[in-house]
Amino acid sequence: MQLGELEKQVLQYLWETEVADAKQVYAYFEKRRGGSLNTIQSTLDRLFKKGLLKRDKQGHAFQYQAAIERDTFIGQLIKGLTSEFNADKGNSLLAAFTSVSPEFNEDQLERLEQIIEDQRDKNKSDGSV
């Protein structure tokens, strides 16, 4: 899935803020990058149509929030990108991961080990292994 720069920034803002209407999003970005309320409303609508935002009508305005967690979204992007370059998704994901793993610090490596162990435990309890 391709996202424009403003779409990425708005999504990041909503991950941090959790819920906001178009005027709140506009007020935040007006100070940082300029633009119009109409541009923000269009961006929110595009993100909603892409399934990345949820919205709930409150009075005359929609309240927006992320429809997907940040880590899940990043994982989907990585899977999608690696599958575009190689039909063997498992190996391409591992290759992509190993190409960036030298940049990890000790804390990140320990966290990764814990995530892997948790996934192994989950696979065992699900009977996936």
Rank of each mutant, 00 (worst) to 15 (best):
L53I: 10
S99W: 01
L37M: 09
L44E: 08
L94N: 10
T72Y: 04
K23P: 03
T82Y: 01
K8P: 09
D71G: 08
F85P: 10
V25L: 02
L112N: 09
E103K: 08
Q24H: 07
N105L: 00
I115F: 11
E5W: 05
F62Y: 15
A27Y: 06
D56Q: 14
L11F: 09
E30G: 02
S83E: 06
F104C: 03
H60M: 13
K124D: 13
K79A: 08
G34N: 08
D45N: 13
L77K: 15
E106K: 10
G35L: 06
N38I: 15
S42I: 13
D21T: 11
S128C: 09
K79M: 07
A20E: 06
I40T: 02
K79E: 04
Q108H: 01
V19F: 08
S36A: 13
L93E: 03
Q9Y: 07
F48T: 05
I40L: 07
K54T: 03
G75Y: 10
G51K: 08
G59A: 02
A27W: 07
N91Q: 12
Q65L: 13
H60Y: 14
G59V: 00
S36M: 13
Q58H: 06
V100Y: 13
L52G: 12
E5C: 00
K50Q: 05
N86L: 12
E110C: 09
S92L: 10
I68A: 14
E16K: 11
I68V: 15
I115A: 15
Q2Y: 15
S92H: 11
Q119A: 12
L94G: 10
E106C: 06
L14S: 04
E103H: 08
F62N: 14
G75W: 10
K8Q: 12
R55W: 04
D88G: 05
E110W: 08
E113M: 12
D21P: 01
A66N: 03
G80R: 05
Q12M: 03
V129K: 10
N38C: 12
D118P: 09
R33H: 09
W15I: 00
E30S: 11
K54S: 08
L47H: 03
Q9N: 09
D21C: 12
T43K: 12
V25T: 12
Q24V: 01
Q108W: 01
F29E: 06
F85R: 11
Q76V: 03
L112K: 05
L81S: 07
V19N: 00
L37G: 02
V19M: 03
Q119T: 04
Q9I: 00
K122H: 05
K124M: 15
F73P: 04
Y64V: 02
D118F: 13
N123Q: 06
T98E: 01
G75H: 07
T39W: 00
Q65T: 12
Q12P: 04
G127A: 06
K57F: 00
T98W: 07
Y28L: 04
N91G: 09
S92W: 10
K89V: 13
V10E: 07
F29P: 07
Q41H: 14
Y13I: 05
A67W: 07
F62A: 14
V19D: 05
E84V: 07
R32N: 01
K89G: 11
Q58N: 03
Q63F: 02
I68K: 14
L53F: 08
F97A: 14
G35M: 04
K54I: 04
